[in-house]
Amino acid sequence: MAIAEARRFGFALERASKRYGAVVALNHVDIDFSAGSTTALIGSSGSGKSTVLRLLLGLDYPDEGTVRVDGQPLGPSKVLELRRRVGYVIQEGGLFPHLTLSGNLALLPRYLGWRAQHVQQRAEELAALTHLPLDVLDRYPAELSGGQRQRVALMRALMVDPDALLLDEPLGALDPIVRHELQDELKRIFAQIGKTVIIVTHDLAEAAWFADRLVLMRDGAIVQDGTLQDLLDRPAEPFVTRFVEAQRRLPEVRS
């Protein structure tokens, strides 16, 4: 257990604020993501949930407050090393169109000096994990379906076996059937790899499917941090109920 613990790490924001021009993206946010936990950040667009991920990755720095990774404050000197230990997946996958899938997967390993054989072996392992057919690896992103692209994006994030996985609306652009299928697979993968996972989504059902801990955000602040049950039974403020009820159920149909 102690060994496994050392391979994972947690994140924290302490009184973190971030402003983009006149827009306040985060307003004195305190939040902790413990090692090995799975957390879903939910909220409407512009609530600041993506900004949390950007700060944790050092893609932006807070105007005020501190970002802690593994207990240490995050600064520019450590940021590249941190990013290599964190996998990051975004909505449209962020695959580079000029490279084949293999080329996309090989980018970071190649920089780290892996042998081609090692890269290939790891790609095959991950293809098995994400249920991606091996023969598509020689294709370009433009030749894939949206679902396949997201699988490859996840593979790319996992290539060098990172300690944490940050996902920003990873399934947001997919059609419902593919989305449903990938939700199942992602949940299985999260359980299998046992890493610190933070997933951003605006879909409450999806959030509850992936994580026990839900963090609801609005206007750059955390509204409620708890389980689905907490949100349903003990809403911190009326907005929580409004957000929960805004998720549409199927209309009643007479049978």
Partner: peptide, 16 residues
């Protein structure tokens, strides 16, 4: 921007 960001998020140095 999402491609630029993805490249940065990988942890590759600027020159690379």
């Amino acid at each position: 921007p999402e491609l630029r960001e993805s490249a940065a998020a990988m942890g590759l140095p600027r020159g690379v």
